[in-house]
Computed example of a mutant assay.
Amino acid sequence: MMRQCVIIDCDPGVDDAVALLLALAAPELDVLAITTVAGNAPLKKTTRNALMLRQIAGREDVPVVPGVDRPLRRKPSGASEFHGEEGLGYMAAFAAAKGVADGHGVDAIIDRVMARPEQSVALVVLGPMTNLAMALRKAPMIAARLGPVVVMGGARSEGGNITASAEYNVWADPEAADEVLRSACDVVMIGLDATHQVRASEDHIAALARLGTPAGDVAAAMLRFSQDVERRIVGGDAPPVHDPCPVAWLMDPGLFNLRPCRIEVETGSELTRGHTSVEFRVDPATARHRWATSADAEGVFSLITDRLQQGPSLA
């Protein structure tokens, strides 16, 4: 099997946790590094959480490298109401046996992209795009070498989840998202239009809990916390599962429908800060952006359950 080289850039986060466990168990993926960023929680916590999850997944071979600790121009804005004070729902924090790798997350992205053939390294961005924006500032040539950048972010027909029109990851650092989307990167954006179709039912959560694996237990606990948040804030029982979707797309692109487009981000207005303008009237031959319009929810959950049952995928 030809494995896709990938860097996971994240801000764990309960749904980031499921995404990381999926990526680290996937035989389809060769995870070169996990880079962390401030977002759902401060950088110190998102980095600690990534180390915890790496240990639970049994993948201490994958380096965790902390990145940028604040948005490009704005004050940090956490999301503890959706992820808990420590970022991982009800899970108690612990000190992982193995610490972070040397260096900075921005350099980790640049170095790994430049060390491999052009367009052979995908970057999955599960939080604010701050690390990638800084990497593009420092080494613009990586834009043409990355292939592709798969982002969980944005909203169009679904409306926002942090404001009326903005999705949290883009809203948290809209200037970073704007810089990435104006770059030469090939961007696949899987936003709320698709992720709101991937909802964790009681049956999905129970199936993960029945696996009897550490990763399955943690994934079930993360989704149970999200279910409780959904009940408290929205009044529903099946929370959307956002961050595993970009990982699932890399593993099985057929689970999502994409349309070529041009995506721009609002940075000037506080009222519409982080709004993603998605324009489908583009030439498909030259479009650098693709937008997910729908997702096969059962296919995504089958992928998660199957891979977390199998255990870690070692390089």
Rank of each mutant, 00 (worst) to 15 (best):
A184W: 01
L303D: 01
P244E: 03
A206R: 12
A143D: 08
R48D: 15
H204K: 11
K44W: 08
E202Q: 14
L308S: 12
A139D: 04
R48F: 00
S165E: 09
P71F: 05
A220I: 02
E298Q: 15
K138I: 05
V198K: 04
M91K: 10
C261F: 00
E81Y: 05
A133S: 14
K44D: 15
T46M: 03
T47R: 12
R59N: 09
V229N: 04
G127V: 14
Q227D: 02
L20S: 10
L22Q: 11
A101T: 05
V180L: 12
I233Q: 07
D11Y: 08
P140L: 12
V37W: 02
V100M: 13
R262E: 06
G147C: 10
R112F: 05
F280Y: 15
V218L: 15
G216R: 11
V198L: 09
L258T: 00
G254D: 10
S80N: 08
E118S: 15
G67V: 00
M52T: 10
S165G: 07
A143W: 00
V31F: 06
P244D: 08
V198C: 10
L132H: 09
L21G: 07
G274F: 00
V31L: 12
N169G: 03
L258H: 06
G13Q: 06
V124T: 04
L20D: 13
D228M: 13
R307T: 07
V187E: 02
I34K: 15
V151I: 13
S313F: 03
L72D: 14
Q227A: 15
E118C: 10
H242T: 14
A50L: 09
M52F: 02
E167A: 07
T36I: 08
T35I: 13
P284C: 11
R259D: 01
A79W: 15
T293C: 01
V62P: 03
N131I: 08
D243S: 14
G67C: 08
D111V: 07
A292P: 00
K75T: 12
L303K: 04
D61R: 06
L21M: 13
M141F: 00
V121F: 00
V18M: 06
F94W: 15
I7M: 13
S120T: 05
D107K: 10
L132R: 12
T272W: 03
P239Q: 09
R224L: 04
R232A: 13
D16L: 11
R307I: 01
A221W: 03
I263Y: 01
M134P: 00
S313D: 06
S80I: 14
G78C: 03
A17I: 03
D107P: 04
V170P: 14
V150S: 12
V124I: 11
M52I: 08
G299K: 07
P260C: 10
I190Q: 10
V234F: 07
S294C: 07
C5H: 10
A315T: 14
L255F: 05
A41S: 09
L258E: 12
K75C: 07
H289Q: 13
M189C: 06
A139N: 12
R262K: 13
A23R: 11
L181A: 11
R156H: 05
D11F: 04
G216I: 02
P148Y: 04
A135L: 13
G103N: 14
K138M: 14
D11I: 12
A57Q: 07
D217W: 01
Q227F: 01
